[in-house]
Design a protein around this nucleic acid. Structure first.
Length: 645
RNA sequence: GCCGGCAUAGCUCAGGGGUAGAGCUACUGUCUUGUAAACAGUAGGUCCCCGGUUCAAAUCCGGGUGCCGGCUCCA
């Protein structure tokens, strides 16, 4: 229950404290600081939470005002533009029903409508014009607290039945607020800008059909996406940023750098060209090295197996719609979507002793999963791929140390790629699950203990575990700020049971081993895509498909160039010779565009001295080095998997 | 799978009911090249596929396939 307080203490960014009576609004606080601040204010923040300027303050805390110039203003601006969008659509098509906007306004806004047809690009242009008209009216936002009954009456009278539904989602006891700007009123918890003149630029981006409340079985609504900023300049900067991100799209770079392609004859199944495959193989080689060091034995398992196996594993019942099937010798067969069942078969080929455990199998087997058309996306989401997959069979007592070892291995691997921001999530029992609660208690506790023991920080993600066991997921942030779930460590008590796996313990009795699923890169295809976008195609030396290119200044030095190429190739460098009849500038430009780490220029001087003139892809000239000196440099960088050149 | 868009030379794209266009690339020749694009010429097409409308379809209409942006799902 709220206690009545007599004064609200606000700590401003400069450390000073301002004391105001409860019910004072941030706007009033701003006005007390200065008229200019009050005029420019778009919103406020209390203890890290963005709040509306018109919110009566009930308690104190760290407090600041955002103005149109603040980077944080965007969220208030876009949230407010969202209402303008809804208003514009209603003005153009009064019969449209409004549903709701977006929660996250860090980049975009959106609004869903019940509308009999899809919005066309022409519609978007009309709506955008209408929005500008509305912005020109410069209405202020009004915050109105209402009772549930009042709110329901308002939207019933307006014929907004979707809104009435949305109202029911608001938990009992929560304050219900409406926001009104000009003629438009919406159910909204805010916060919004002071008035529409603070929205300097709007742009509608696209329209799409969406399922109501995100549920496929529900009716379809029409969604419009847009973005807004305080000024046209900021909008232009945002659009330029988007354009820049497009330039490092891995599908585009995959073609430009001749890494991979797709063919309609095998939809969503990538063809890796020699250069793409070179990176892919280098990644796998690295994982192999780690596997060997951490005690994994690599196995090779079949691609197509009798459905009997998949019935045993549970995939036939739970995963069928994602599997490819075929038939041979009048037996129904399935192409494997996962490796784990085959590893259970290997484990079961002989009597295992507790002395043998943990047994660790690694597998780079090719997996095929039928993905619904429309969900595939470049190398990010494909129908044919490999994982750096592994399964650890261990005793109950070994779970904690095995999980810890896998975690350490995963973190070591991420450091190599410079993914220093790793978010770890512990996903616990989902509603739909198998196994007793005691087993889940135990499994979740084992994972938590493993992480706590090493003081590894993690978030609990309740209810997001696999149906057979809890898991630890590893998320990394890429250069574009996107988060990817890569690695996973999953506890599984079910698969060993289904396959009747046993080991003989010290007491001579048979026990069931625990299975741990482990992946680090996740899908190698997807990891490659992330890496392409992360590096914009400028791979670290150890991954670069072509590490150096020899560039003779003219045809006269092609012979010396070839000798250099051969010497480097013999030492294991992936090197090419560009002996085409072109000017040096032309060859350099092309090598640069291809992001080749080193360009080795050879002419009269170099031939004379037995050197190469080294240019790095970033543009610096390292001067002349002997072939041996260059080899030493490259050798060290490759051996250490350095991200430097 | 669902909503919308797109599909023209190897690539990026223009055009458009009546003989198919550009730049880059490729190839050939001239030049013999010194750190991000020498010059000239040549070649290159079932305008995604199937059907319909029309005297005539790459263009208009319908269906299919693939891709793109979303939704849902997910490594």
């Amino acid at each position: 229950m709220e206690t009545t307080i007599e004064a609200v203490h606000l700590t401003l960014p400069d450390g000073s404290v301002r004391t105001v009576p409860p019910g004072t609004t941030p706007l009033e606080v701003a006005a007390s600081i200065g008229p200019r601040l009050a005029k420019d204010a778009v919103g406020a923040e209390l203890d890290g939470r963005k709040v509306d300027l018109r919110l009566p303050l009930a308690q104190g805390g760290a407090f600041r005002i955002f103005t149109v110039k603040s980077p944080e203003a965007g969220e208030f601006i876009r949230h407010s533009a969202e209402h303008v969008l809804a208003d514009a659509v209603k003005r153009l098509w009064p019969e449209a029903e409004i549903d709701a906007g977006r929660k996250d306004h860090s980049e975009k806004f959106q609004y869903d409508f019940r509308f009999p047809r899809a919005f066309t690009p022409d519609d978007l242009a009309r709506i955008e014009d209408k929005m500008r008209e509305i912005l020109a009216e410069k209405s202020g936002f009004e915050r109105i607290e209402v009772s549930r009954g009042e709110a329901e009456r308002v939207f019933r009278d307006l014929g907004e039945t979707l809104k009435v539904e949305r109202l029911k989602e608001i938990p009992e006891g929560e304050t219900i607020t409406l926001y009104r700007d000009g003629r438009f009123t919406d159910l909204c918890r805010g916060p919004h800008v002071q008035n529409l003149s603070q929205i300097g630029a709007v742009k509608l981006l696209e329209a799409s059909g969406v399922y109501w409340k995100g549920d496929e079985s529900n009716e379809r609504l029409q969604r419009i996406y847009g973005t807004a900023f305080g000024s046209e300049k900021e909008l232009a900067e945002y659009l330029a940023q988007v354009e820049l991100a497009r330039a490092r799209d891995h599908r585009r770079l995959g073609q430009e750098l001749d890494l991979f392609s797709f063919n309609p004859l095998a939809p969503a199944m990538p063809f890796l060209h020699p250069k793409g495959a070179a990176i892919y193989i280098a990644l796998i080689d690295y994982v192999r090295e780690l596997n060997a060091r951490y005690g994994y034995g690599e196995v090779v398992t079949p691609q197509i197996l009798d459905v009997e196996l998949w019935k045993t594993s549970g995939h036939y019942d739970n995963y069928q719609e994602n599997m490819f099937f075929t038939e041979a010798d009048e037996r129904e067969m399935a192409v494997k979507p996962m490796n784990c069942p085959t590893h259970c078969l290997i484990f079961g080929t002989r009597l295992r002793s507790y002395r043998d455990l943990p047994i660790r199998y690694a597998d780079f087997g090719r997996l095929h999963r039928y993905e619904r058309s429309g969900v595939t996306n470049g190398l990010f989401r494909v129908r044919s791929f490999q994982q750096d997959d592994a399964h650890v069979f261990c005793t109950e007592e070994q779970v904690e140390s095995a999980v810890l070892a896998a975690t350490g291995m995963i973190l070591e691997l991420y450091r190599t790629f410079g993914f220093d921001e790793v978010r770890i999530e512990l996903s616990t029992r989902p509603a739909k699950r198998i196994g007793s609660d005691e087993l889940w208690d135990h499994a979740e506790a084992s994972l938590a203990r493993a992480l706590d023991g090493r003081c590894i920080r993690y978030q609990v993600n309740p209810g997001d575990g696999a149906f057979y066991g809890p898991k630890i997921d590893f998320h990394v942030q890429d250069a574009l700020g996107r988060s990817w779930q890569l690695g996973t460590v999953q506890l599984d008590y079910q698969m060993p049971q289904r396959f009747g796996l046993k080991y003989v313990a010290a007491d001579g009795a048979e026990h069931q081993p625990v299975m741990i699923h482990r992946a680090m890169l996740g899908s190698v295809e997807r990891f490659l895509a992330i890496l392409i976008e992360q590096t914009a195609g400028a791979f670290p030396l150890w991954l670069a498909p072509v590490q150096a290119v020899v560039l003779p200044v003219s045809e006269k030095f092609a012979g010396y160039g070839e000798r250099v190429r051969a010497a480097l190739a013999a030492a294991g460098v992936q090197v090419e010779l560009d002996d085409r009849n072109e000017k040096l500038g032309y060859k350099i430009r092309e090598a640069q565009v291809q992001k080749i780490p080193y360009m080795l220029v050879v002419g009269a001087r170099e031939q004379e001295e037995g050197t190469v003139a080294v240019r790095r892809r970033a543009g610096e000239d390292l001067g002349a080095l002997t072939v041996d000196a260059f080899l030493a440099r490259v050798g060290d960088l490759v051996a250490s998997r350095s991200r430097e050149l």
